[in-house]
Simulated assay, not measured.
Amino acid sequence: MQPTPPAHAPHTASHDREIESLAEFDEVVAEQGTLAHFRVQAVDLTGRTDALLSVDTKGAVFLGCPMDEAAATRVRAAGALVFPPVPDLPFDPYRGFVYTPDELFDSLDQGYEATPDALSYAWLQETKADGDVFASMLRAVHDDAISDALDELLVGARVVGVMGGHAMARGTEAYAGAARLGRELARAGFTVATGGGPGAMEAANLGAYAAPYGDEMLMDALQLLAKAPRFTPSITDWARAAFEVRGRWPDGGPSVGIPTWFYGHEPPNPFAAHIAKYFANATREDGLLARCTAGVVFLPGAAGTVQEIFDNATPNYYESRGEPTPMVLVNRAHWTEKLPTWPLLRALARERSMEARIALVDGIEEAPAALKRLGG
């Protein structure tokens, strides 16, 4: 199925020779009359044989574009490179856009194990076990394509990351608070970005999804979700509850989830409209934090969240990405007693420019004001 490009993701100057949809292909052929030096990415061209047989394709690159054999032979002879689709994969390594929840959870009615998300994780486990170099290359190509699509999606956006653990259960006050945080950030004009998984991540994406609706909608949605509080023991039931909410309120606000198949036991949450899912967790972690240009809010979490705090602190400390971005840690007891991360972060920041960009607050409701105060 040909994906639909996000309405708010225009091409930038650096991408003005990329073609990522059939509509773009037709527009370029009609207006420019040439495909020379264009990059055509994951577009089904089986119905465009006449165009491929007639226009100049010198220096063009076709990445995973199905086309008739006569067309493929002709464009190769004209000087184009053709990378054909790879058969029998549960994902497209050349895809031009980030994922949607409907794509990753397709066939959920047959159980989560039948979805592209689960099948992609199973493929990863199989190919990692046998050390197939071709599979390694496909994973790298896929992740680079996802990064490219994510960059295009977020052009001009003020992105605030919300980080937190996957263990936060639906039906708890902590989950409701994280959802209210996501809603307030979205209503303030920020693009909410999370690690894309369950728990605190899902709650923040849910809040952004609820932003266009009245406050009662979020309360009702939280009650519906509470019937499947965790993604264990059944991811299927957990996901179906989320899609029930989406079905009842179909016009939710956008946000971004950036999960990974590295943590295959954690499914992506269906409330992020745009899901940039990676095979390589290191690429995903660095990319997620680097794109949070307006700051990051860290909710209580465990090892993964601690890692994210210092992954974010390092470029702020060295100013390797320019001016430090705001960091707000939520829950004083958690970050000073249970996992005493705050004292070390504060010691690192002392007498550096990032010192004015970090804050510790007691409750979630204080986070938006702290973010604003720090310049987010």
Rank of each mutant, 00 (worst) to 15 (best):
V98T: 11
E18S: 06
G164Q: 10
A211I: 02
F190L: 04
A174L: 12
I235G: 00
G189Q: 00
V297R: 03
A203G: 01
E27W: 00
I258H: 06
F271Q: 03
V245P: 02
G161L: 04
G214S: 03
P270V: 02
R284C: 03
E365P: 00
A369Y: 09
L185C: 04
C65P: 09
L138H: 09
A72S: 08
T325W: 03
H11G: 09
G304P: 11
A203V: 00
I358M: 08
T336A: 05
R139I: 03
G252N: 04
A347W: 03
G189K: 07
V330D: 02
A369C: 09
A356R: 15
Y99D: 11
H274W: 13
R248K: 11
L124M: 15
L35E: 05
T260R: 10
E202G: 03
P254H: 03
A210S: 14
T127E: 15
P66S: 10
H334E: 07
F190K: 07
G196I: 00
T46Y: 09
A204R: 05
S147M: 13
A208I: 09
V162L: 06
A9L: 01
A118L: 11
P324F: 08
S353V: 07
E69V: 11
T283K: 15
D251S: 09
A208G: 04
V162S: 04
G156I: 04
T57L: 01
I364F: 10
D92K: 03
R139E: 14
I19T: 05
Y121V: 12
D151G: 12
L224M: 13
A242C: 03
P85M: 03
A272H: 06
E173D: 12
W342Y: 14
A276K: 08
G197R: 02
A7V: 15
L222H: 01
V245Q: 03
K338M: 13
T34F: 01
F62M: 12
F134K: 15
E126Q: 15
D220L: 08
V28L: 04
L153Y: 08
L124F: 14
V330E: 00
F83A: 08
A347V: 03
A129P: 08
A294N: 11
E103Q: 15
Y121R: 13
I146T: 13
F105P: 06
A176P: 01
T100C: 07
R284A: 05
P343E: 06
R240Y: 01
W238I: 00
E355R: 09
V297W: 02
I364M: 12
A118G: 09
T305L: 06
F243N: 04
A282K: 08
S54D: 11
K128T: 10
A174R: 15
I309T: 06
F25M: 06
E202L: 02
Q307G: 07
G33H: 11
R291H: 05
W123A: 08
A239Q: 12
G47M: 07
F91W: 06
P6R: 05
S54G: 01
H15E: 15
T172Y: 05
Q125D: 11
G264R: 08
D220Y: 03
A347L: 07
A280G: 10
P116I: 12
V296Y: 04
A186N: 10
G111F: 08
E308S: 00
A290L: 13
H265S: 10
R187F: 04
N269T: 06
D68P: 02
